[in-house]
């Protein structure tokens, strides 16, 4: 005899009911947790921006320890003195600039008539001014992004990188101190003041990165595509800020 659960009508009803129940459940969970998740992302952005300008809780020389989540809001207000958005020749103050989604901007910028909004965060610490630029690009598997703190001559003062899905142990090491610290002091302009970016390069005979003006840092072993992605990201993203820095020095 055919079992009750073998009937087509039963199967169909079961499938519909299951879809509705599971769908509702997941939508509900996502909705309930959405605010909390967005808040986590916002805090993380603030932490990363502060990290790039050297405000962190690192103790050992391999640490990447962000400022704790309960202190980050206060610190962000204290150290980030100004946030601006550069759009073509127009520069506007915007204290929500750090929430601008770079991915959306990059996609919008593909349209010819859209001038991309470029956020820039100006931080002050111990009398020194940092210009922190968010960057976003492609690694081997997925998105990579970061924050680069510059001085007014476009010399890197600090960097932070992160990634969505680079290979663990290889490309994922782009978040490690021995890599991100190599960027500190590195010049983005060449000796005659033209924008050159920073190339992540294997075998540049400078593994300890003693030469800061060569526009090169030593690459990660086994992560060529990730390294190329970082080079391209820095070149493409920072290029848009060059006029701003040129203006800054004229004043």
């Amino acid at each position: 005899m055919e079992k009750r659960t073998d009937k087509n009508s039963y199967t169909l009803l079961f499938a519909i009911a299951m879809t509705v129940i599971v769908g509702t459940l997941l939508a509900f969970t996502a909705q309930v947790l959405k605010d909390k998740i967005d808040e986590n992302r916002r805090i993380e952005k603030q932490q990363n921006i502060l990290y790039a300008m050297g405000i962190n809780e690192n103790t050992g020389e391999n640490d990447v320890v962000m400022i704790p989540t309960d202190k980050v809001g206060e610190a962000f207000n204290k150290y980030i003195v100004k946030q601006i958005v550069i759009q073509g020749d127009k520069i506007t103050d915007n204290d929500k600039a750090y929430l601008i989604d770079l991915k959306t901007e990059q996609q919008l910028a593909k349209k010819a008539d859209y001038k991309r909004r470029l956020p820039l965060f100006i931080g002050k610490k111990d009398g020194k001014t940092y210009y922190i630029v968010p960057v976003r690009g492609k690694g081997l598997w997925d998105a990579i992004w970061g924050y680069i703190a510059l001085d007014k001559n476009m010399v890197v003062q600090g960097a932070f990188f992160d990634h969505k899905g680079e290979t663990p142990g290889l490309g994922a090491n782009m978040t490690q101190r021995y890599f991100i610290d190599d960027f500190i002091g590195e010049h983005l302009l060449d000796s005659s003041g033209n924008f050159k970016g920073i190339t992540v390069l294997k075998g540049n005979n400078d593994p300890l990165n003693n030469d800061k003006t060569d526009n090169e840092v030593d690459a990660l072993a086994g992560a060529t595509i990730t390294g190329n992605g970082i080079s391209a990201m820095l070149k493409d993203e920072l290029n848009g800020y060059v006029p701003y820095f040129k203006n800054l020095n004229k004043k």
Partner: peptide, 28 residues
């Protein structure tokens, strides 16, 4: 109560739903 004809799909849905819940809870 699982219809045997679509039991693999039911199993997949259960596994996928649990994984998504885990992911969301961890993110939060």
């Amino acid at each position: 109560i699982i219809p045997s004809k679509i039991r693999i799909i039911v199993q997949l849905v259960v596994a996928a739903a649990l994984v998504i819940v885990v992911d969301l809870v961890l993110k939060a």
